[in-house]
Design a protein around this nucleic acid. Structure first.
Lengths: 243, 243
DNA sequence: AGAGATTAACTCGAACTGAGAAGAACTGTA
DNA sequence: TACAGTTCTTCTCAGTTCGAGTTAATCTCT
């Protein structure tokens, strides 16, 4: 916010050229055990042909609404997505045409159908995060910020459940951590831990109809609990190396 | 960011009226063991006479530079401040005059002199956070977000050292946690913990010249270490209650 | 039927935690 | 000066949590 004094003192259309505000969304999902991000292909200059994060102008709406709207326009219906503000990127020169402030959002989605090629995007598709480099503008930086946020956030919040369906097995949940962290937690300890953290997951009483693709018994099905933070947290194995 | 297609499709000066971008800074410090926030008094409408967070327009500079500049204008020189982006608040109607996007920043400062009554602000002063209510615009919300960020961040980063001087005692550091969390950690366990976390604090070899005001031996002096995260983390006592 | 894989549960020692206690050092006051 | 009270620092101890490994049971595929 701004005080009126500052507003009046500072207001000079030439000194403060028009500023555009957009939202860009880092949408993450897991497909076949690999973390993917939703990208659109740019059809025009600048950066024609390059991949970019989906996004667009903020209209007469809240920022959260703008992010949700952009996401819906790119991917169709979005059930059970978690959406949170990530950070704002507004350095001069990040867009060659004018000063553009981008409010970046981070979305966690369960496996979704291929994005509908409607909306504003010329083409939208899921790209493995390892292959998502050389993006337009400063979107490499925004994506990196989103990935780090995701990696940190599943440690102490139950957001990993936003990547799986309504009902899931502990192995599927472990697969989320493996995909996001890039390393696999110890299966036995992971099992013990998620069951012991209050409110993380609830037993539905049901089991899967079949065992795993490569064998093993049927596993119990769980649903997300009502905890909003995980205590104690599930720390990354690599946290040890930070010492 | 925005793709050019979206830019061209969406551009309509009447549909997207001018947007102003400001930075507002939640500056926290500890004075006499109490957490304070830096506020300015508004001299003009709207919200004349009410307190608000210091802030102002973003010029031809990065957002970080804008936050640092505003802070410097309000408080004079700022040695050893930690500054980080907090969140962006841009709901329609949060400013009655026009659409204003506020990129909020969070600053941790060691005890500073009274702010210089220069800069843009009519009057600037440190206010205990408990008394900082009824602020102008949505600044109550921004302050609350800053406080929660601060409480969480000193758990797993060494940022508490940003509130104290170059050299400090463990008791002073404990005072930071007490002021920010609103509850006092167990002195003995706190002592053991901060010494055992690698890179948190380093022994200078020196001690204070005097004991505490109310007695007690001289205490060792420490300086901040080079760790960027604390592992294991220093968790809030009240974290237990979240179960 | 058999090989291989997986779930789920258990064991073990190491590390960490909260709570309390105790000794030494120092202050201000009687 | 002596004393009461406060504080820094270290230590103890039991309970909890952790990483790593093991095991039994179950299931799929060949």
């Amino acid at each position: 916010m701004v005080t009126e004094r500052e507003f009046l003192d500072g207001y000079d259309p030439r000194a403060y050229p028009a500023v555009a505000v957009t939202v860009d969304v880092v949408t993450l999902t897991i497909r076949d055990g690999v973390l993917h991000v939703l990208l659109v292909e740019r059809g025009e200059q600048p950066h024609a042909g390059r991949l970019a994060l989906p996004g667009g102008f903020v209209r007469e709406e809240t920022l959260d609404e703008a992010a949700l709207r952009e996401l819906a326009e790119e991917t169709g219906i979005l059930p059970r997505v978690h959406l949170e503000q990530l950070a704002t990127f507004g350095d001069p020169g990040r867009d060659p045409r004018m000063r553009v402030m981008s409010v970046a959002y981070l979305a966690f989605a369960p496996r979704l159908p291929e994005p509908t090629v409607g909306g504003d995007a010329a083409a939208a598709r899921w790209v493995p995060v390892a292959a998502a480099t050389g993006l337009a503008f400063d979107h490499d930086t925004i994506l990196a910020a989103g990935l780090e946020r995701a990696r940190a956030k599943i440690e102490y919040t139950p957001l990993a459940t936003a990547f799986v369906g309504e009902e899931f097995t502990i192995a599927q949940l472990r697969g989320v951590y493996t995909a996001v962290w890039g390393e696999e937690p110890h299966a036995g300890n992971f099992h013990r831990k998620v069951l012991s953290v209050p409110g993380f997951i609830e037993d539905t009483g049901a089991t899967t109809q079949r065992g795993g693709e490569r064998g093993g018994p049927r596993s119990k099905l769980f649903r997300a609990g009502d905890a909003r933070i995980l205590h104690p947290a599930l720390l990354r194995p690599s946290a040890e190396e930070r010492r």
